[in-house]
Design a protein around this nucleic acid. Structure first.
Length: 584
RNA sequence: GCCAAAUUAGUUUAAUGGUAAAACAAGGCACUCGUAAUGCUUAGCUGUGAGUUCGAUUCUCGCAUUUGGCACCA
């Protein structure tokens, strides 16, 4: 998918198109006041205050028509530079522009505005020569957006659009948007019977069907096996806990709004757990530890419940109940670097084996100004953040730093991916924590016999298994690799009357070789069964007819291919066994 | 939660202020089939609660859920 923001030419074109949109809005709604109209990855938007008037998507044709008229008129876009006072005078009737101008520093900023015909907008530019260039555009969506992104502010109307130099590029982009909807995990999940939701159960609470649970189980086994090899020990802890547990950890203070409300029974207060750190802290605290025992790596496929805002819920990508592939590594300060490195390598290896290539690393740091959200200990933060930087630089991976995105207890490394629809999401995370172990008085006995506080690494490779399945379904368009496919092989006799017996024999052989295999012995025509096998994205369809019976072979067709390969069954089993285990 | 929109059969979609339609799926019957849909047939639906109306799936309002953004995302 194209990134408009990063392409200089598209960037300028789209920004100019935002001005055309604003001009058209001004023509149609003279009362309109404008906030900002920046370029984003997928085009541009403009935030507009229209008072009580609400723009709906059904108004787009009207607005687009006015935009076309402006484009056709082909006015030049002319730049003027102003002093701060001139700018304040010029836009004196526009509170939004006054807000922008008054925050500009005259020394360092050249204040400029751009005029096209009867429309002038405060803008740093640059722009295309004339509005003629903005010919191939499309308005995409409209929504409310809080002024300055603050939910306490007024809601402005945000109109999104996109513009390309040619009609073909625009058409291609619109086609891509349509395709993205086709690979949305919510559609695939329904089509392939992977998961569903039910109003009576509750929103944001996905239920996995047999097909979905097979994927789940395979992923769970895959990651647990990898973790075991790295010395992780897996545990099982309850999905709720006493409120005091979260008061001790600080989560109650920091994340209460994201937790389901507490429930009282027999005078005791409980909450559904939103994360597993406190439970794992208590696992550590259950025994006395020597420096020789560290690092201790506690892993769990753990169910968590978070009270996500209803508007944030999205398929199995963002839910109110999910399972983290969680682990907490209790380490000495000297071990931070090697353990953190090992986690990053585990993430990289997993992605490589699963053939995931489109991701970016983000180093999430605290906002030093935000003393409320973040545990207040400058020295701790500086040390933690420096350590993470050092490890990442050593491994040599590229990352971007994000201020104010850290967890309250420490900085973190997040792996971000882009889903088919919507904003970037975090898949893997590794967080460094100097804070919680002290709150729980965790200790180990060091060489000199003194008690020391361990450092904790919180990490999740799949993030949540739910979210990972969502992402992976979209990456693969539902055509999962052999080892993850709910049904791996479909055995189809050409004619039940003559070939069913042989098909059953082959079916049994594949089954006893450990494959998930189906025998399609319905009284249907071959073409029908093949078609269904393909739409279900089953990796291998085996066609068995007289040719195969006579030669004692099998013929198979791989998903999304049309050619047929004929082999003897033992060679075929050898081949698919290799394919199934090859990812490890 | 906020700004909007949507909700019709298991699924995808059509239509309507006066007994709601089609395709696929499901059941039945026939066809005995060589690489993406054999034919016939049966059953099945207007999210929910109010209001307007002689009559509402259709109009209005509330609620629920979903979708697109915003905000949030340990």
């Amino acid at each position: 998918m194209i990134n408009i923001k990063e392409d200089e030419k598209l960037n300028v074109l789209n920004h100019s198109c935002a001005h055309v949109l604003a001009q058209a809005i001004k023509h149609l709604y003279p009362e309109a006041k404008f906030w900002v109209g920046p370029v984003i990855e997928s085009g541009f938007y403009y935030d507009i205050d229209l008072g009580d008037i609400v723009i709906k998507e059904e108004d787009f044709p009207k607005i687009e028509k006015e935009m076309k008229k402006i484009v056709k008129d082909g006015k030049r876009i002319v730049r003027h530079e102003l002093t701060k006072q001139e700018a304040l005078d010029k836009f004196k009737d526009d509170p939004y522009k006054i807000d922008l101008i008054s925050r500009m520093d005259e020394e360092s900023t050249v204040i400029s505005c751009y005029t096209q015909g009867d429309f002038t907008d405060l803008c740093r530019g640059p722009h295309v020569e004339t509005v003629k260039a903005c010919k191939n555009f499309k308005l995409l969506k409209v929504s409310g957006a809080y002024w300055k992104g603050d939910k306490n502010n007024k809601v402005l109307q945000r109109i999104y659009g996109i513009c390309f130099p040619t009609e073909e590029e625009l058409a291609k982009h619109l086609e891509e948007l349509k395709e993205a909807k086709e690979r949305d995990h919510r559609k695939i999940g329904k089509d392939l019977d992977i998961f569903f939701m039910n109003d009576l159960v509750g929103k944001g609470l996905p239920m996995y069907l047999p097909n979905g649970y097979i994927i789940w189980e395979e992923l769970e086994n895959y990651i647990k096996n990898k973790e075991k090899k790295l010395g992780y020990q897996h545990v099982l802890t309850p999905p709720l806990g006493n409120v005091e547990l979260y008061k001790t950890s600080g989560h109650w203070e920091h994340y209460k709004d994201n937790m389901f409300p507490k429930m009282e029974v027999e005078g005791e207060e409980f909450v559904l757990r939103p994360m597993n750190c406190p439970h794992h802290m208590m696992i550590y605290a259950n025994a006395i530890h020597s420096y020789r025992d560290l690092p201790i790596r506690i892993g769990e496929i753990a169910r968590d419940c978070r009270f996500e805002a209803s508007g944030a819920l999205k398929g199995i990508e963002r839910t109110r109940s999910f399972c983290q592939n969680d682990a907490h590594l209790f380490v000495t300060p000297e071990q931070i670097e090697s353990e953190f490195t090992s986690v990053v390598n585990l993430i990289l290896e997993t992605y490589k084996q699963l053939n995931i290539t489109n991701y970016t690393f983000e180093l999430s740091l605290r906002d030093p100004e935000d003393k409320v959200k973040y545990h207040n200990d400058d020295e701790m933060w500086n040390m933690a953040e420096d350590t993470l930087r050092k490890v990442l630089d050593n491994i040599g991976i590229a990352y971007t730093e994000k201020i104010g995105e850290a967890a309250f207890y420490g900085p973190k490394l997040d792996v971000q991916v882009k889903p088919a629809v919507g904003n970037e999401i975090t898949i893997s995370t590794c967080q460094l924590d100097f804070c919680l172990p002290a709150k729980f008085n965790l200790t180990y006995i060091d060489k000199d016999g003194s008690k020391k506080t361990p450092v904790v690494l919180h990490r999740a490779v799949f993030g949540s298994i739910d979210r990972f399945i969502a992402y992976y379904l979209e990456e693969t368009k539902g055509a999962l690799p052999l080892w993850l496919s709910p049904v791996q092989l479909n055995v189809i006799p050409v004619n039940n009357a003559y070939h069913l017996e042989y098909a059953q024999e082959i079916f049994e052989k594949l089954k006893s070789a450990g494959f998930r295999v189906e025998l399609d012995d319905r009284e249907e025509k071959l073409g029908y069964k093949i078609r269904e096998s393909q739409t279900r994205k089953i990796p291998y369809s085996l066609i068995l007819g007289q040719n195969e019976v006579d030669a004692q072979t099998i013929s198979y067709r791989k998903y999304s291919t049309t050619d047929t390969v004929t082999l003897n069954i033992d060679d075929f089993i050898k081949q698919i066994k290799f394919e199934k285990d090859n990812y490890k």
